[in-house]
Design a protein around this nucleic acid. Structure first.
Lengths: 122, 122
DNA sequence: GCGATCTGTAACCATATGGTTTAATATACA
DNA sequence: TGTATATTAAACCATATGGTTACAGATCGC
């Protein structure tokens, strides 16, 4: 069971809530990249891009290793799976309740038909 | 194709990034509820809870209709599906690249074996 | 060693977020 | 008509966010 009270989930969804950070993730889906490579396509200064990577790291969506002067980043998939799982579980729950509502409506219609056949209008 | 630059997606993920808002959604998954009912279980003042509902509305995750003095809220599923879709597409992409990496490693190992068989060490 | 490169840190700014308290508005009810 | 109820709005506060510029450290290549 995925609870709503989860600082980890807070950080993951917050990390996903900015287009620059989603772009960084997408960029990293192809291959590992260092900070300069990640920052280049973003229309902002390097420090701003660096902060976005830090947000992704706090959410554990990205890990970095330092090689010489380069900081090489890669995606960590598990937290993304957590977000996925929350959404999927939620959606399932919700759809189940929709089905329940449908069943209720069917039942009401059936009862209505029963009443009509017992006490025909005509 | 889901793009990274999407204010709608920004709002959805941001809305999901707070435990109170996830709790509200979960509560609404069971049944429609007015603001007082939604606010009751949250450990915060009514106005604070009301603001959270507004955030969910801005993300189009929740719709309200006014009946007398009550504001009755229900979930709107489509934007949640968008988030789901982004995550799913992203995950698929990422896993595909992982498979590609596996294939590359297999290929490298195969070439290594070929070299070894052409030039045996012993 | 020296200059170019990759990154971090600090200081600053405007705005957003998440909460509070208090007051105002509209509706239901007796 | 008056009172309780459901909700919004306004004012305020502390902190976070997202961006900038300027500077400080490492480290690579010559």
């Amino acid at each position: 069971m995925v609870t709503d009270r989860s600082p980890a989930l807070d950080r993951v969804f917050h990390a996903l809530a900015h287009p620059a950070r989603r772009a960084i993730l997408r960029s990293l889906a192809d291959r590992e990249q260092n900070l300069s490579e990640l920052a280049a396509p973003l229309r902002m200064t390097f420090p701003a891009a660096s902060k976005h990577v830090k947000v992704l790291e706090r959410a554990r969506l990205v890990r970095r290793r330092v090689v010489g002067r380069e900081h090489i980043c890669r995606i960590e998939g598990r937290p993304l799976g957590d977000a996925d799982q929350w959404l999927e579980q939620f959606r399932r729950n919700w759809e189940r309740n929709f089905l329940r509502l449908d069943a209720l409506l069917d039942q009401m219609h059936a009862e209505e038909r029963d009443r009509d056949s017992e006490h025909p209008k005509r």
